[in-house]
Design a protein around this nucleic acid. Structure first.
Length: 569
RNA sequence: AACCCGGUGGUGUAAUCGGUAACACAAGAGGUUUUGGUCCUCUCGUUCCAGGUUCAAGUCCUGGCCGGGUUACCA
């Protein structure tokens, strides 16, 4: 009733699918009921593209007071496995969605589906074709040439019934015959040229075992499964657009619940690949460590990398739903990850490439604890004590012997602030015999404890540090885009998409030094290493005695950008 | 080549279903700052083209152009 509330509601525009659903609800279609489904085939792991579909389907159900089912589309036993069924459920739960007791399988409906096929045969709408797969392909015609009818197209209902029964009984060889819909061999839509409805596969199904040797095709099973479950809006990606006439035709032949299929554009991201086939190839060929490699766009990879599920949901919300087949900049994903992590992540000090600093005027054998703010974004996060003494480590990249113009960090004779600690001045550069910088001798100003100078003097730079002895060692893995090219699939002729793999997508740093509190971070916890990015202990490889951290995403780095720009001229 | 679907700044979306282009990201410039982070300000579009309907078109019509999908007993 409040006007402002109404305005706010009006401001939130509905995507074209939600608009359709809203209209249907308003019109009282299906009694105002809304039911969707997420229908993965259990033959691979879920990726961020699936997340878009999951958020859409579960999101719409929730927004319209409806339900969303999880249904495994397991109609092809030769490629599907139980292993994926479990993994997919895990991933969806992690993303934050729940299907309650509505976990279904297309294979649950095999008997009903078979009955529907028999109904179609009885109506003269389907027939058993005894042509070979090659013959079927050839007589289907082409995009420009109509197909020609099968010589078996006009078999009698009785004959078809008998043949189909024998198919089910296993008396026919694989490939010797199929059940086809009798629609229109001259249709400009290839899907309507007597599509195959059932084929013989003498394979063991992960759920039905050897009960069946004939299996329905996707087109046959999908719409009918939707109907059986009372789905009102069946959402799928654009490549099924041409299947919709078949979806509708199949449904309309029987006096059953009629769902509506609506197609939307799948998600494409820059600097990565999304197809199951390509992902599989990367895993199989060892370009990545597995399906949960943190560089992959798989949900497992992202979970391991420390991406918060809330951010993924937010991302799916931002990208919207349309019929335009575009490519989303992966920078948008990274942005929502940072946005989320910036709010909720405790800050910590860590040095990835340690350079020793000796405070020559700091008393030997002495140490102290300095108070550091946990999260400037959130005062409630409080503070913590971090050990400090005469010998420290700073980031090697925070020191330059001959600093360029805009370099604000440490250099000979220059003063900087150690975050939450003291101002220090570099007095001497210690080098080994081959001229490498091995340590810095600095003086600190005791009056600047905490990081402020009582005399009001300023420093240009603040750098992070860690105590040399009271710190723990760790391995840290840094990631960049898996592919250097924005669109890895676009390759010059003769080239391979894998040529675009980024050789620097994984950089492993050994001998990193972390503030002691990081030693007992629990798996799944996320922190910000100040000035470096957001990190999480690797749930796979990190052990109490051998810490491994993964960088979820780097902080934005203006300095790096300036350097890059300058370097290019 | 036939059919289907699309086309709004660099990218992704929006525009109260004809009323005078908005948001986010990216990029660039500047400000604040004990993270070169965050935050704040500013810059970046003849809505693919050409006609037409209309007082009024990103929205409707026609024709082009460009892009995607489709010729598995895969999904």
């Amino acid at each position: 009733m409040p006007a402002e509330e109404k305005d706010e509601e009006a401001l939130r525009s509905l995507d074209f699918i939600r608009q359709i659903v809203a209209d249907d609800v308003a019109a009282g279609k299906h009694g105002g009921r809304v039911q969707t489904r997420f229908p993965p085939e259990p033959n691979g792991y879920l990726h961020i593209g699936h997340a878009k579909s999951i958020c859409l389907n579960f999101g719409i159900a929730r927004e319209f007071g409806g339900l969303c089912n999880l249904r495994f589309d397991d109609t092809n036993p030769v490629v599907e496995e139980e292993e994926y069924v479990k993994a997919i459920q895990e991933d969806i739960r992690w993303l934050g969605f729940d299907w309650d007791d509505r976990l279904f399988y297309a294979s649950d409906y095999f008997e009903t589906l078979h009955g529907y096929a028999v109904d179609l045969i009885r109506q003269g709408k389907a027939y058993v074709d005894s042509q070979s797969p090659e013959e079927i392909r050839e007589t289907r015609g082409s995009l420009t040439r109509p197909g020609t009818p099968s010589p078996f197209r006009d078999r009698t209902v009785e004959e078809n019934l008998d043949l189909f029964a024998r198919m089910r009984e296993g008396k026919m060889e694989e490939g010797s015959c199929v059940l086809r819909a009798k629609i229109d061999m001259a249709s400009p839509n290839m899907n309507l040229r007597d599509p195959v409805l059932y084929r013989i596969k003498k394979a063991t199904h992960h759920r039905t075992g050897d009960t069946w040797c004939i299996y329905p095709t996707y087109d046959f099973a999908h719409g009918y499964s939707d109907s059986i479950e009372g789905i009102t809006h069946s959402l799928c990606t654009l490549e099924f657009e041409n299947h919709r006439p078949l979806y509708d035709w199949l449904l309309q032949q029987l006096p059953i619940h009629q769902p509506r299929q609506i197609e939307f554009a799948r998600l494409n991201l820059t600097h990565t690949v999304m197809s199951k086939r390509k992902l599989l190839e990367l895993v199989k060929d060892g370009h990545v460590s597995g399906w949960d490699d943190p560089r992959l766009p798989t949900l497992r990879g992202m979970r391991r990398r420390g991406y918060p599920p809330e951010a993924l949901r937010r991302f799916c919300e931002i990208i919207g739903v349309t019929k335009f087949d575009g490519v989303t900049d992966i920078a948008l994903l990274e942005h929502v990850i940072r946005e989320q992590l910036n709010e909720e992540t405790p800050r910590r000090l860590a040095v990835l490439d340690p350079l020793k600093v000796i405070l020559t005027n700091y008393p030997e054998g002495e140490h102290e604890e300095l108070e550091c703010i946990n999260n400037p974004q959130n005062p409630d996060a409080g503070t913590r004590k971090v050990p400090f003494s005469r010998e420290l480590y700073i980031e090697r990249s925070d020191f330059l012997e001959a600093p360029p113009k805009k370099f604000f960090r440490l250099a000979p004779g220059r003063e900087v602030r150690l975050r939450y600690a003291y101002f220090i001045t570099c007095q001497n550069v210690v080098k080994d015999s081959s001229g490498n910088v091995v340590a810095l001798e600095c003086t600190y100003d005791p009056a600047t404890r905490g990081g402020d100078a009582p005399d009001g003097r300023k420093v240009k730079g603040t750098i992070h540090w860690v105590d040399a002895t009271a710190s723990v060692e760790a391995e840290v893995r840094l990631f960049e885009h898996l592919f250097a090219a924005e669109k890895p699939e676009e390759v010059p002729d003769g080239g391979d998409w894998k040529d675009n793999l980024n050789p620097a997508s994984l950089v492993v740093r050994h001998g990193c030094r972390l503030e002691p509190s990081l030693a007992d971070l629990a798996a799944g916890e996320r922190v910000q290493f100040e000035r470096l990015g957001y990190f999480t202990p690797d749930p796979v490889d990190s052990r109490p005695d051998r810490l491994v951290f993964l960088r979820t995403v780097a902080l934005k780095d203006k300095w790096a950008r300036m350097q890059k720009k300058g370097g290019r001229g």
